[in-house]
Computed example of a mutant assay.
Amino acid sequence: MSAVMENIMGDNAKPAAEAPAAVRGAEAANEARAATPAPAAAPRAARRRIAGSGAFMRIVPPLLGVAVLVLVWQIIALKNSSFPTPLATLQEAISMFSDPFYRNSPNDQGIGWNVLASLQRVGVGFGLAALVGIPLGFAIGRVQFLSAMFGPIISLLKPVSPLAWLPIGLLVFKSANPAAIWSIFICSIWPMIINTAVGVQRVPQDYMNVARVLNLSEWKILTKILFPSVLPYMLTGVRLSIGTAWLVIVAAEMLTGGVGIGFWVWDEWNNLNVPHIIIAIVVIGVVGLILEQALVALAKAFTYEQVSN
């Protein structure tokens, strides 16, 4: 009887003796899990490092570039007393932009009016070039006969400097303003024609075969197949044209006179006002950059990328 009781007591005592070991194992496992970092912590830290590196590359290198430019500018100003320092130019710019739209006389207006006058000429000439160049590019790309007919003419006239066309404009229009617009038109039209025609010629032949099988009209082919496919090429031509147009208008206005940023630069040179010339150069660059980036954003919005399987 006592042996049986001892056996029973021994069997009941075993779990009690083994329980502390099991508890200790569970506690050790919990401690190990607590000590182990969360799986998302490492990727989150890596993402923060990548974001910080990206912000560093976006901010610091441009600032260093500007600092180098200002340093070189300061050195040139120290070597040449007639050249204004960055600080003197900044003070003059603050004074100028405090009232950019004053108007004392037709030949004495603020820089804001001159920029707007130049933009107006660019807008008219560029718009006319788009109205003529884009449809002509579609026609040249679509019809082989027109491509062969206009190809030599475009190759001959495209390398001609836009300012070489200015005397022709003065001779034909008898006025400086239409002549400047004519120069913008003739320099803006070539990139639009060429890029649009190339875009039409690079439309996949399978698309045209499907259109032929479905017996689509030429209007349906133009609006449903050609235009969506050619749009990125066309916008690239437009972007190139606007940059060229803004370059040409400054030089054309120096020769034709009147109100405009080009004439304003030339007038300030005649007055030996070098700080104003430097300010005008910066303004011309900023306006050109804004026009360029606006069209780049437009082109990206309408550019379709093929998704790989």
Rank of each mutant, 00 (worst) to 15 (best):
Y233C: 13
V230F: 10
S98V: 10
W190R: 07
D108H: 06
F126A: 07
P135G: 06
V230D: 13
C187D: 09
R103W: 14
P135N: 11
G151Y: 10
I186T: 01
I168Q: 09
N177S: 13
M192I: 02
L216R: 01
R202L: 09
L166P: 01
W182S: 00
M149V: 10
D206F: 03
F101M: 09
F101E: 02
A139N: 03
F126D: 10
T196M: 07
G133I: 04
L131D: 13
L128N: 11
L146Y: 06
L131H: 15
V122P: 10
P178Y: 00
L214I: 02
S188W: 00
R103K: 08
V160R: 05
P204H: 10
I193K: 07
V143A: 09
A180D: 03
T196D: 03
C187F: 03
L166E: 06
I134Q: 07
I184S: 03
F101S: 02
L157Y: 13
G151A: 14
R212Y: 01
A176G: 15
P204N: 05
S175E: 08
Y233M: 01
F227R: 03
I221T: 01
I193E: 02
I181L: 07
A176D: 13
N104I: 08
A164R: 02
A176W: 02
I225V: 15
P100H: 07
W219V: 09
S98D: 11
V198H: 14
L119Y: 01
P232E: 05
M234S: 12
N215K: 03
P152R: 05
Q120I: 07
G123V: 04
I154Y: 11
V115R: 11
L116K: 09
W190L: 10
A180Q: 01
I194L: 15
G137K: 03
A176V: 04
F227H: 00
F97M: 14
M192L: 09
S183P: 05
W219H: 09
R212F: 06
V172P: 04
M149Y: 14
I225S: 05
P162T: 03
D206Q: 15
F173G: 08
S98Y: 11
V203Q: 02
P178K: 03
L171Y: 15
T196A: 12
A211W: 03
T223F: 05
V203R: 06
A164T: 05
L157D: 11
T223V: 12
M192A: 09
N177W: 08
Q109Y: 12
R202H: 15
D99F: 01
F173K: 00
M149E: 12
G137C: 05
G133W: 12
I154L: 12
V124A: 04
F126N: 11
I225E: 12
F150G: 00
S147N: 11
W165A: 14
N114E: 15
G141E: 02
G123W: 04
V213H: 06
R121M: 13
W190T: 01
S155G: 04
V115T: 11
V115L: 04
K158G: 05
R202T: 08
N107W: 11
F145H: 10
S155M: 12
A197W: 04
I94K: 06
D206H: 12
W182M: 01
G137H: 08
L226D: 06
L231R: 07
L216W: 04
F145M: 08
L131T: 14
G199H: 08
